[in-house]
């Protein structure tokens, strides 16, 4: 079968990438200035004994090499460690944050993929018209807007209409499931929209240029000569070829979903993983950072692998 080699090779490559990233993550946070201990012992008059005790408790008195070995061993057992900050297992912390981030980011990304692809295809097909001009200008506008600025503008615009911060109304007492869902969804609109609009710009531009390139190909002229109608040409001949760069883009942005969106989560006080990472950096919460970056690494590498395999499926010319 075509491609057993290819799949094995790509998968092996992905596994190695994750291992290298894990190692770099481990080293990187320990190279950062500041120490976990000075944060943890931020009680007045912390004695040298207390600091030593804390160091021992968290295993920071061991050599870097020994720490690394312990880390890998625990990782192999699926143990991500315990957060320095709140003494909870890192996996628990991550899961709590991820649970909040995923729906919000996914909503924005899906919005961007659907509408960006649609307007990108239309813009390419209606090349040279006012419609294309308007689409491209809008897309460029959103794409070049700083995320946090767009978020703030939306906050100003929609204050009073939609909730602009947090994830749920804390003053709802014992809400029914539907009330709670409605509440969370209404809180989700603005952050998702901010993310969606920025990504929408990117998608429109990339889909348009991929489509334009494809529509200029000779086989499109052949398809017209064969008597196919315009929409059939797009569907049967152009899209599949234009999908190659688009598939990569989609896979890559799905990979970054778990990274959350630090800026957006900050603007909208969304208790997601981006915020958790930011807080962990401030606290030098090494296990938490390592865990979060491990999650991010695996997700990005995994979706890259998906993109590779998809590419292979879409393009018969790829053999290695």
């Amino acid at each position: 079968m075509r491609g057993a080699d290819y799949v094995i090779k790509r998968t092996a490559f992905a596994v190695i990438t994750v291992f290298v990233a894990v190692t770099i993550n481990f080293a990187l946070f320990r190279l950062a200035p500041g120490s976990a201990i000075s944060n943890l012992s931020r009680v007045p008059h912390a004695t040298q004994e207390l600091r030593e005790a804390l160091k021992r408790e968290f295993g920071l008195d061991k050599s870097k090499g020994a720490q690394y070995a312990i880390y890998l061993k625990q990782l192999a057992h699926g143990n991500l460690g315990v957060s320095f900050e709140n003494q909870q297992p890192v996996s628990h912390n991550l899961w709590e944050a991820l649970k909040n981030t995923l729906p919000m980011v996914l909503l924005g990304t899906v919005f961007a993929i659907v509408f960006g692809t649609l307007t990108g295809v239309i813009a390419a097909w209606r090349r040279g018209t006012a419609l294309e001009g308007a689409t491209v200008t809008t897309a460029l506008g959103f794409y070049s807007m700083p995320t946090h600025w767009l978020g703030l503008m939306l906050v100003i615009l929609f204050t009073g209409v939609l909730p602009t911060g947090g994830m749920a109304n804390d003053f709802l007492i014992n809400p029914s499931f539907w009330t709670h869902l409605k509440d969370v969804l209404s809180h989700m609109v603005l952050p998702s929209l901010t993310l969606g609009l920025v990504l929408y710009g990117e998608y429109t531009l990339i889909v348009r240029s991929a489509m334009l390139e494809t529509l200029g190909e000779d086989y499109i002229l052949t398809a017209r000569a064969k008597g196919l109608k315009p929409w059939a040409i797009v569907r049967k001949h152009a899209l599949r070829n234009a999908m190659l760069p688009i598939a990569t883009l989609v896979a890559l942005s799905l990979g970054y979903i778990v990274a959350g969106a630090i800026l957006i989560e900050t603007v909208f006080s969304w208790p997601g993983i981006g915020r958790a990472v930011y807080d962990a950096v401030l606290q030098r919460d090494y296990p938490m950072l390592q865990g979060a970056f491990l999650l991010l690494t695996i997700s990005v590498v995994f979706f890259n692998l998906v993109a590779d395999l998809l590419y292979f499926k879409l393009d018969p010319r790829i053999t290695t």
Binding site: E217, D218, Y219, L221, T222, A223, R224, A225, K226, G227, K229, H237, R240, N241, L314, D315, P316, R317
Partner: peptide
Amino acid sequence: IRPHRWVDVAIVFQGAMNALNPVR
């Protein structure tokens, strides 16, 4: 023109051209 394309008048493009869709 469309009803006549391929049925009455067909065309063959330059040999070097990518006249066939590479993914089909």
